[in-house]
């Protein structure tokens, strides 16, 4: 359900970008999805299939997901570590003065457009 709401946003942005570029049909949309973005990739692609096929411009268009691993930075010791394995607490020094460096992305990276010769 949450993924479907996101899909509606993706469709809106993709249609806008396609129109700006004079594109009539999009064959693939590539997403960057962060590991801790709370998006479940399979749900996103399922919702995408259902919703995209209702749009003339996006019929059969594939949603490709490029995951971005989550990395947290520790202000205590200055090191980075994988977020999912260790959470808020730095595995190097035990500090909790840490913040997410990346892994929260829900981003449209690019669209793929078929070319007629």
């Amino acid at each position: 359900m949450h993924e479907l709401g996101i899909v509606f946003y993706i469709i809106r942005d993709v249609k806008k970008a396609a129109q700006e570029n004079g594109v009539e049909h999009v064959s693939a949309v590539v997403m960057n999805i962060g590991e801790v973005s709370t998006i479940i990739p399979e749900y996103l692609t399922d919702c995408w299939r259902w919703a995209a096929d209702k749009e003339e411009m996006l019929k059969g268009c594939e949603l490709k997901i490029e995951p971005i691993p989550a990395v947290t930075h520790c202000d205590g010791c200055g090191k980075d570590y994988p977020t999912v394995a260790h959470g808020k607490k730095c595995p190097h020094c035990g500090s909790e003065q840490t913040w997410l460096l990346r892994g929260n992305e829900v981003e449209i990276k690019e669209i793929v457009v078929p070319q007629n010769k």
């Binding site: 981003e107 457009v113 070319q115």
Partner: peptide
């Protein structure tokens, strides 16, 4: 098929 890639780089 030949394709063109249009970069968007935009948060949803």
């Amino acid at each position: 098929e030949n394709v063109k890639i249009i970069e968007i780089k935009k948060s949803v």
